[in-house]
Computed example of a mutant assay.
Amino acid sequence: MADQLNKLKIALQIPDTEYDDLLQLYLDDATDFLKLRLSVFALPDEMQAIVRGAAVKKFNRFKNEGMASYSQDGESITFSSNDFDEWADEISQWKQDHNGTNQGMWVNPYEI
């Protein structure tokens, strides 16, 4: 998980450890939410980039949490209500690929 934190800090260009606890919290939360979306107990490695992306979004909203939009001096920013909307296609594809259909299984008729 430390590797995930280092990658997140690179993405955000944060060279020191000032925000490490907060960033780790964002990574942990994003992991938990994505596990719920995928209905899995352990997050697949191929989903780590989505976790980092969601953590970046969360960090960029730091101190603006809970707002749907922000406007000041002619500049307006609107926040997505769902951190995972950007990756909806990837999440849907993963779920489709791992839903258990089209997978053969041998059943011993004597055990039924």
Score class of each variant (00 low, 15 high):
61 R>A: 07
43 L>V: 05
96 Q>C: 02
28 D>Q: 12
13 Q>K: 15
33 F>E: 15
91 I>A: 04
29 D>L: 10
88 A>E: 14
111 E>A: 15
105 M>Y: 12
26 Y>A: 13
18 E>K: 13
6 N>W: 05
72 Q>A: 06
106 W>Q: 09
13 Q>E: 15
35 K>N: 10
82 N>H: 03
31 T>L: 02
24 Q>A: 10
42 A>H: 08
89 D>N: 15
15 P>W: 11
50 I>D: 05
33 F>R: 15
40 V>A: 06
95 K>W: 02
16 D>M: 05
79 F>A: 04
98 H>G: 08
37 R>I: 11
89 D>P: 04
109 P>L: 10
55 A>V: 07
55 A>S: 10
58 K>W: 08
82 N>D: 15
34 L>E: 01
20 D>I: 07
30 A>K: 03
100 G>N: 05
56 V>H: 03
103 Q>E: 14
12 L>K: 06
59 F>E: 06
78 T>G: 07
30 A>Q: 05
37 R>D: 09
66 G>T: 04
106 W>L: 15
55 A>L: 09
19 Y>N: 13
81 S>E: 10
71 S>Q: 12
29 D>R: 13
105 M>A: 14
48 Q>A: 04
45 D>L: 12
4 Q>W: 08
70 Y>M: 08
84 F>I: 01
69 S>G: 00
71 S>M: 11
12 L>H: 03
57 K>R: 15
70 Y>H: 06
29 D>C: 07
91 I>K: 00
25 L>V: 12
77 I>A: 00
49 A>H: 13
46 E>F: 01
33 F>M: 14
74 G>P: 00
39 S>D: 14
46 E>V: 11
70 Y>V: 05
87 W>R: 11
14 I>P: 05
16 D>V: 02
40 V>E: 02
61 R>E: 04
102 N>P: 00
47 M>R: 04
41 F>N: 11
48 Q>V: 05
35 K>G: 07
108 N>E: 12
109 P>V: 14
45 D>W: 03
42 A>Y: 11
45 D>E: 14
22 L>N: 05
22 L>I: 13
101 T>Q: 10
50 I>N: 07
84 F>N: 03
67 M>V: 01
37 R>S: 06
109 P>Y: 04
27 L>W: 06
44 P>I: 09
91 I>T: 03
74 G>E: 00
52 R>C: 00
10 I>K: 11
25 L>S: 14
94 W>I: 02
64 N>S: 05
33 F>I: 13
41 F>V: 07
80 S>Q: 05
36 L>M: 06
95 K>V: 04
7 K>I: 06
39 S>M: 09
7 K>F: 04
1 M>C: 11
86 E>A: 15
76 S>I: 11
73 D>S: 05
91 I>D: 05
23 L>C: 06
7 K>Y: 06
